[in-house]
Design a protein around this nucleic acid. Structure first.
Length: 504
RNA sequence: CGCGGGGUGGAGAAGUCUGGCAUCUCGCUUGGCUCAUAACCAAGAGAUCGUGGGUUCAAAUCCCACCCCCGCAACCA
């Protein structure tokens, strides 16, 4: 089984902020889950470098050598993802030669298909949107999104015959109910395709930065047409057909809710034209506010994910973002709520459970913990199997907060089990039963570490270390079996989630 | 007819597509426990599910109307 997942490629006119990190963490969590399940995973992210915005940013910052600026910025993004422990398999930049080759190849295919034609375009172009607007889109003559007066542009452009694929797209969406998620977005897209999806100008005459049209080098390819193709060129399209064949089609595109039209209408239409398979699923995550206010640099509330992780730890931030905001919805990022969740769910929940089990296990002085032929063993295995179903379902249905809930249920179940069996009392009276009971508890902890791994990889490793187990290197499908690994040399070590230092 | 999100115990949320005893976390009350990070377990109080209609045996959920809140200059997922 292969699994190919992508994030959007990001504009690099500034540093990554918490919103970018969120989308990337989400994708990374899926990638880790599928690796754990033994899939052949390819996880791609990258940077969108052919946008006019980048060029403007470079100029503003005084760089005359645009490519040099892009190299620096892209490097900064790659460093950020590395520091945040993102496990992308590759990183695609749209100014790379391999991308350019793929785009040219793709363009030729679409051209040969007869889906490119030359026309005169007269329209209102908003550089904020990187798109032409209709008269009816405007509010008081301004772009409704950017409150900016669009420029009247009249030029000879090449058009992509998107309208030709309208019916096929609608049919595909109808037949594949999972294609666009969440459902509310699907409805939005269906309306959009029915009412507004028309042939689109895919070249620009007066822009100097970008990929030249293979059939007319006086024109540059429209940035979205170019950018979307990263999902192909990132896995070999145009430069390694074997690799490409191994991973295409994408199993999941993670995108922001603002760019679903491009991903759910234009992109599939492009693929249909090129005769390529469509991605299996596009999932639109929501946006969040920061302490109730929108993300905004002028308000100074843009959060640097690297800094945030330096304070709380990567796992805690990942956990919080995925726990606090149901995937697909909008949410609010609040540091106070992060601290609340840290205290109640991580320190007092997971951390305390780990701590009490390990302490008890150390006290009983056993060196190896194995399965015992007692009813409790079966009961625990059954409980975990049920929870695993919920956990897996959360990933399959893109409702990750339900997977996290399954982890909490597992810990709650185990905490209740401790209370019921009172191992601290058993240790005094009946060491054999105590070892059996603790053995079950340690297995529950091991199971928890696996459930936790996609969300909190470092914490999972820390728990496993305490159980005398190796780190998770993928291919953990066998490990998920009850009692799949032998637990030995248990050691408590320091607490997983120490109390937070009081904030000054 | 611009686009979108939301209104559910004191706080924050899930549930709404696919109707079926109103769920979770925090806080509060009471009891238990002493292995554990003053942690854990149990019981309990607390909700006209924004409003008004409609459909239905049954509505937070479906339909209609309405009220209110939030985001949409630039940066920006």
């Amino acid at each position: 089984m292969k699994y190919y997942i992508t994030t959007p490629i990001y504009y690099i006119n500034d540093k990554p902020h918490i919103g970018h990190a969120y989308a990337t963490f989400v994708a990374d969590t899926f990638a880790r889950y599928h690796r754990l399940k033994g899939a052949d995973v390819f996880f791609l992210t990258g940077t969108d470098e052919n946008s006019t915005k980048n060029v403007e940013a470079a100029r503003e910052k005084g760089y005359s050598d645009i490519q040099h600026y892009l190299d620096m910025q892209s490097a900064e993004w790659q460093t950020a993802w590395k520091e945040l422990g993102i496990t992308n398999n590759d990183f695609i930049r749209t100014t790379e030669e391999r991308h350019k080759q793929g785009v040219e190849q793709f363009f030729r295919l679409v051209h040969e298909k007869g889906d490119i034609y030359k026309g005169t375009y007269q329209g209102l172009y908003c550089t904020g949107c990187e798109a032409f607007l209709r008269e009816s889109d405007l509010a008081d003559g301004l772009c409704p999104f950017h409150k900016k007066k669009p420029e009247l542009i009249e030029e000879q452009n090449y058009f992509f015959r998107a309208s030709k694929y309208r019916a096929a797209l609608l049919e595909h969406i109808e037949k594949n109910s999972d294609f666009i998620q969440p459902v509310s977005r699907r409805n939005e897209i269906v309306n959009y395709i029915k009412d507004h999806f028309e042939d689109i100008s895919i070249s620009r005459e007066k822009i100097e930065w970008g990929i030249r049209l293979p059939i007319d080098d006086s024109q540059v390819i429209y940035v979205w047409f170019d950018a979307l193709i990263n999902y192909l060129t990132g896995i070999g399209y145009g430069w390694d057909e074997k690799l490409f064949a191994r991973y295409w089609p994408a199993d999941l595109h993670i995108v922001g809710k603002d760019i679903i039209k491009f991903h759910c209408a234009l992109w599939p239409a492009m693929l249909l034209s090129a005769g390529l398979q469509l991605p299996r699923r596009v999932f639109a995550h929501g946006f969040f506010t920061i302490e109730g206010q929108k993300v905004s640099k002028s308000l100074g509330n843009a959060i640097d994910p690297v800094q945030l992780c330096a304070i709380y730890g990567i796992d805690v931030v990942r956990y919080f973002l995925l726990r606090e905001i149901p995937l697909g919805g909008d949410g609010d990022f609040s540091e106070l709520r992060l601290q609340d969740r840290y205290e109640s769910e991580l320190a007092k929940g997971l951390g305390n459970f780990t701590s009490r089990v390990l302490t008890l296990a150390e006290k009983c002085e056993a060196t190896v913990f194995e399965a015992a032929a007692i009813p409790a063993e079966q009961e625990a295995a059954r409980a975990v199997a049920d929870l695993r179903y919920a956990w897996e379902n959360g990933f399959e249905q893109c409702v990750l907060h339900e997977s996290l809930a399954a982890i909490h249920d597992l810990i709650a179940w185990a905490d209740r089990y401790i209370d019921k069996t009172k191992p601290w009392a058993l240790l005094k009276e009946d060491n054999k039963t105590a070892v059996q009971t603790l053995s079950i508890l340690l297995e529950l902890l091991r199971q928890a570490s696996l459930f936790l791994y996609p969300f909190m990889p470092h914490t999972a490793a820390a728990i496993r270390e305490r159980l005398g187990l190796s780190g998770i290197a993928g291919d953990g499908v066998a490990w998920l079996q009850w009692r799949a690994e032998r637990i030995h040399s248990v050691s408590k070590k320091e607490n997983l989630f120490p109390p937070l230092a009081p904030k000054p």
